[in-house]
Design a protein around this nucleic acid. Structure first.
Lengths: 206, 206
DNA sequence: CGGAACGCCTGACATAGTTCGGATCATGAG
DNA sequence: CTCATGATCCGAACTATGTCAGGCGTTCCG
């Protein structure tokens, strides 16, 4: 009838189907592992053949890319929630909350952890668009920690090494357990003491 | 002729070929990535067809297993050298040396790092035999660090999280650089301060 | 010399991701 | 209502993968 009526509907349907595919891909990834996703299986999950997926994504890697984006959006969400909760909190509370949330974020979905933080899928590299989202989330998290007194890059790098290390060990060597998860608070204490000591020795030089 | 003359020769040749295959697999892994090893390519590197590899290894995973073993033998070597050098050294020197060696061990061969310390190959799990070697190396390294005052499991777990975290971030986010590698000494300082503090507060309770 | 063991090969199969061309079906125009 | 159009989906097929079954020549012991 008038103007451009159903273009929106079609586009909406299309994106909805895309999201459905990505959701099914996550389910499959958690069941069969990240690289265990088979196009034929994935198609079956959403009621179509493997070839039909190619009208939504031009390759399997593009599906991984959508998952990557999806994962970092969830990550960004977590960071944002943490930043909101950080208002009127002391550094210790902020850092412990951030570390706990991060480790839980990782351990609660190992497949996602591997996709986001390791180069777990052989030929896959995130697209610039998705990568920018990842970078933005990283920056936001960095910024969020500056509220707890972590301002210089080196300290933040040690922070990322520490929390990814805890998560990585937990997932690789004690999946489902809490052997490293329960060390998070202690690790944060360690980190904070070091930051304080660092600041002290720097001010001495001034 | 006499007794069992050429049995040894045959066995020797056989193991030599096996080692040749594993060595070629490492080269291929470094070139094409750990999962980029194709049986046909690997065969070509050692002058035979893919199917002929199956007279030496009953599956591709068995080749990965041989590589896993190979890698942990190298790791054990490193630990042993470190333990020897640790004699008459103070804790700081021991720990910094150990951390540096470990991170270098990882960054110098990312493919090996992924095989040994992450579940990088989809369906692969090390055989019990190889796994025992890995466990022994792990135990030896734990024991070696007890000379530096790291005696309880929790502290050692934080240690492994820290060093694998540094190595992991270095490899994933700054390959070829030294952004995290140069933070190793600082991280060890942080760790040692925490250990000292921990020991102090424990003795207070006693 | 004869046979067995060994080393490597050819051929083939199943499954992976992916491409191509055509069938189906809803949608909007006349 | 009819018909063209574009989105959607499918069947067949291509390539590359790991792997199995069987064959042929060489080596070496009895």
């Amino acid at each position: 009838m008038s103007g451009v009526p159903n273009i929106d509907r079609q586009a909406a349907r299309r994106t909805k189907t895309s999201e459905e595919i990505v959701a099914a891909a996550w389910v499959l990834a958690r069941e069969e592992g990240l690289t265990g996703i088979a196009m034929r299986d994935l198609g079956a999950r959403v009621g179509m053949r493997a070839q039909s997926l190619y009208s939504y994504f031009s390759s399997k890697h593009e599906i991984y890319d959508a998952m990557f984006l999806d994962g970092y959006l969830a990550f960004a969400d977590m960071v944002e929630t943490g930043a909101a909760a950080a208002v009127d909190s002391d550094p210790e509370t902020i850092l412990k909350r951030a570390a706990r949330e991060f480790v839980t974020f990782c351990t609660s979905d190992p497949a996602r952890y591997q996709l986001l933080f390791h180069r777990a899928v052989p030929g896959f590299e995130p697209s610039p668009a998705s990568w920018n989202v990842a970078l933005a989330a990283y920056e936001r998290s960095r910024e969020s920690l500056s509220a707890a007194g972590i301002t210089d890059q080196a300290s933040f790098d040690i922070w990322t090494a520490l929390v990814t290390g805890l998560a990585g060990q937990q997932i690789a060597n004690d999946p489902g357990g809490d052997r490293w998860e329960r060390l998070v608070d202690r690790s944060v204490d360690m980190f904070r003491a070091h930051i304080r000591e660092n600041a002290r020795s720097e001010s001495e030089h001034a």
